[in-house]
């Protein structure tokens, strides 16, 4: 029989909206599973809050959770800071996890800070790497700081749980095990609607629905575009490749395109299969948002542009020549496939 109190619990917050789990939860489950192998006596568990969401626990087992703690309550139907942080903190105080990982989404960043404050522990935000320190046997959470100019490994030596948030798409999505099962532990919240000072009174869905974090192909432009018209060229190539347009920060600051397209430290982190960087010099603030892409094709007139230091292939040339030719040749390849 295992001693319940001796188990080192590695927790993952399972973020859900409208009964659907956010993929970052499973990315974290994969990380938790890797950490668990380095930490003797540990097990991976999920924390699930919501209303009518019990079915998500089944998914959590397949991604590696051996147990899911579930609080279902009508006040949890839509995310609000108070009931979610009270509920999660109550679970922390009762089950005393060693590590607690949360997605660095708007929801997770809002929630994580409140839980850490309620239980008085340390929280490391927006980590890009998680490991167990081999000597100290504690979480070593690495994050970019000073606008991505420096990486810092943060330790939380004495307070528990050791908390960290990780942005979507920073970690790979693990393969689910279709037959895996686990144990469901139900807990209650004990809050009524009257206790909650914030009410949802409306929702305006995002226009366009761009989802750059999960695009397989991103055609990105930077200052080298020179004019907002260049974005149309990026869109044409992105359309051919089934991708989306990304940009570096100056283009958003100039008002040429909306923030949703921004890749980098203050924008989105992406890891597409193909990232085409056209007219992007590759300042570190941009690189931290895209350096995990599988293949990086850089196009720049300046052979010394830092983007070439991380490019899988670099073309020194004018993007206004290179992209139209890419469009021509890709079209030719795709027509060739259709004929065959």
């Amino acid at each position: 029989m295992t001693d319940e109190t001796a188990v080192k619990r590695i927790w993952v917050f399972i973020e859900q909206e409208e009964g659907r789990a956010h993929q970052v939860s499973w990315e974290l489950m994969g990380a938790a599973t890797r950490l668990s192998k380095e930490l003797e006596g540990s097990q991976v568990e999920g924390v699930l809050l919501g209303y009518n969401v019990a079915h998500i626990a089944e998914e959590a087992y397949r991604y590696g959770a051996s147990r899911v703690y579930l609080i279902e309550d009508p006040v949890l139907e839509k995310y609000r800071n108070l009931p979610y942080s009270v509920g999660a903190s109550k679970l922390v105080q009762k089950y005393k996890p060693e590590i607690f990982l949360i997605g660095a989404t708007t929801l997770g960043r809002d929630l994580g800070s409140s839980i850490a404050t309620r239980v008085r522990t340390g929280l490391t935000a927006d980590c890009t790497e998680l490991a167990i320190d081999p000597n100290l046997k504690i979480l070593a959470a690495t994050r970019p700081t000073f606008g991505g100019n420096l990486m810092a490994t943060i330790l939380c030596r004495t307070h528990r749980p050791q908390m960290a948030t990780v942005r979507p798409r920073v970690l790979p999505l693990p393969e689910p095990l279709p037959t895996a099962t686990g144990e469901l532990i139900r807990e209650s919240l004990d809050l009524s609607e009257d206790d909650i000072p914030v009410k949802h009174v409306g929702f305006i869905p995002r226009e366009g629905g761009l989802n750059i974090e999960y695009a397989d192909v991103i055609v990105a432009g930077g200052r080298g575009l020179g004019s907002p018209d260049g974005i149309k060229l990026l869109e044409e190539l992105a359309g051919l490749l089934g991708g989306v347009v990304g940009v570096s920060r100056p283009l958003v600051d100039a008002g040429w395109i909306s923030y949703e397209h921004q890749v980098g430290q203050t924008g989105k982190t992406v890891r597409p299969k193909l990232y085409i960087a056209a007219g992007i010099s590759g300042a570190v603030q941009h690189r931290v948002g895209m350096a995990n892409s599988d293949f990086i094709l850089a196009i720049n007139t300046d052979p010394n542009a830092p983007i070439f230091q991380i490019a899988s292939l670099g073309i020194v040339g004018d993007l206004y020549e290179v992209i139209p030719e890419l469009i021509n040749q890709v079209k030719a390849m795709q027509q060739g496939t259709e004929r065959s």
Partner: peptide
């Protein structure tokens, strides 16, 4: 509760080849 264990500059990703339109021509580069 948190302390910085280590701080370092990000490790560069391995760079691939760089080809030039001025040397190979546009079509060949693409």
């Amino acid at each position: 509760p948190t302390v910085v264990g280590r701080a370092y500059t990000p490790a560069p990703r391995q760079a691939g080849d760089i080809i030039r339109v001025s040397e190979l021509g546009l079509q060949e580069c693409v």
